[in-house]
Structures are given as structure tokens and as C-alpha cells.
Design a binder for these strands. Structure first.
Lengths: 133, 133
DNA sequence: CACGTATATTCCCATAAGCGTATATATAAC
DNA sequence: GTTATATATACGCTTATGGGAATATACGTG
């Protein structure tokens, strides 16, 4: 099976995941919201499903897709080994990002997910205070 | 420029980043440690450099490479929109917090330790308004 | 049953990415 | 200077991936 990293390398797939982060959706809804062709959506959903990013339930002819947590955890686990490192730079980075108002790529408009909120900071909230033990 | 997601889709590049997470290295050191051919290492380093993941300083004929924080921050920002979702799964949350605790003392590899005195200071709990510096 | 809707799958093609081999550039040492 | 070392780049090849168009499958309705 493909690694989670390869899966999220594709912009349309990230867009789909972004949509599903809000709530579950049918294929047609994704198709319209992201303005992708139906086969494209289905194909990407298949890849996402096989990689464990999403699961589907049947509703008549529809398939309702929703996220599954595990692959995200894997990604986060990998990132963790660098988190301590970039935490040291977070303040400088923040100033930087403040200027260049970052935003997500992809064909999908995130719902007001303004990046440099506390999400980031929260994650490494403790980088102050180097209490060694 | 390629997105950070595409960059880390490549296993060898993730390996290189992993090595550099420990400390800076020359091309030859990476080459030997990961048993990759020299051109392969150089090519991947080029990609990583152009994507802002690493930077190099010159030391005679050597180039010493080290990590840069920004792309990791971007990855984390994207992941953030899903973090709340997967945190809802309790044991996942536990692992997450567990890891956060461990990484604090400079550990490199996360351990599956089941000790939970987590919940400590809501390490990544979002409300907790960060005051700017 | 026939028909419409929703989704999945197949086929073909073009583009790109990674690898190995060979070569180029830069610096150091003699 | 010449030679050795360290790294970068170019070329050719192979393979994987994503998209479009067409088609297949499943379900619902009358």
C-alpha cells in the first residue's frame, strides 16, 4: 500500500480531504464543490480509501465518505521528530508568516482556516522554559 | 516550486530529513549512512534545498546541510485542520499527548509508553489564547 | 420492465520522477 | 602545475501517475 505521504502529495486529494474535514459528503457533492469530473473524484476516493484516509457507507446509490484518523496520525508521528526543532524558530516564523499571509493550496477554499492561529502554537506551546530533567 | 507535500512523498528524502533531524551532515556522511549513491543524495538535497527544507554552508569542498523550519511548519498547518478530528478518538489522543511529553526531553524516537499523566497543561488544547510576545 | 441517477471502472495517453553512469566543477595537498 | 577528494550536473531510460472519454454496475421509480 502506498505511504500516506504519497497519498497527500496530490493536490486534488488534499482538497477532498479538506472538504471531508468539514463533514461527510457524497461523491457528487465533492464533485460539484471542487469542480472536478466524476471519474476523477471516484478515482481519488478509491486511492484515499485504500490508504485508509476515508471510508464510505452506502446510502441507496450514494456513497457517503468520511475521514478516518489513522493515516493522519502516522503523518503527525513522522512530523513529530521535527517538531522540537522548528519550535525553536516558531516566533521568528510567526512574524514571517504574518507578513506573507499564508494560505492553503488546492482547488478548495478552506473555511476560514487561517493558518497561523494558535493551532500551531498550541502544538508546541511548551517550547518556553527549557526545564531539563 | 513544488509543494512540501510532494517533497516528502519520496522515501529517500524523508530518510535524509530524518538524518538531518539529528544534526547537520555533509553529503558524504548522508551517502554512507543511508547507503545511497552520491548523485542520488546530491539530487535529493537539491530538491530539498529548493523547497526550503534544508540549507547548506560551505566547508572547503564539503557542504554541510541542516534543516530549515518553515516547510515543516506548513505541513503542520495543513495537518492542523484534521487534528481536532482525530483527537476525538481517545486512544489516539493519548498517544499524541504521550508523544508530546516524550519529545520534550529531546527524545528522537517516540515510544509507545502507556504512561498517561497527560492532559498536562493542555499541551495542544487550543483554547489557551496565546499571547503574542 | 425501461429509464434516470449515482458511482465505479477501464483504456489510452502524456508527463514527470527517480535511478545509474558518466562527467563537470571546486578545493585541497603535494 | 598534477592528483585526490567532495559535490554537482547532464543524459538516457524506465516506470508510475493523473486526466479524459467511454462504459459498466447498482439502485430507485414509475
Amino acid at each position: 500500500m502506498e505511504t500516506a505521504f504519497v497519498i497527500i502529495a496530490e493536490p486534488n486529494r488534499r482538497a477532498i480531504l479538506g472538504v471531508l474535514a468539514v463533514s461527510e459528503r457524497s461523491v457528487g457533492e465533492i464533485e460539484r464543490q471542487l469542480r472536478m469530473t466524476q471519474p476523477t473524484v471516484s478515482k481519488h476516493l478509491r486511492v484515499l480509501r485504500e490508504a485508509g484516509f476515508v471510508e464510505a457507507t452506502v446510502d441507496a446509490q450514494r456513497r457517503l465518505y468520511r475521514l478516518r484518523p489513522q493515516p493522519f496520525q502516522e503523518l503527525d508521528n513522522w512530523l513529530a521528530q521535527f517538531r522540537r526543532f522548528w519550535s525553536a524558530h516558531v516566533d521568528a516564523l510567526e512574524r514571517h508568516l504574518d507578513r506573507m499571509e499564508h494560505q492553503q493550496d488546492g482547488a478548495f477554499k478552506p473555511t476560514k482556516n487561517k493558518t497561523h492561529e494558535k493551532t500551531t502554537r498550541g502544538a508546541n506551546r511548551k517550547h518556553h522554559k527549557g526545564e531539563k530533567k
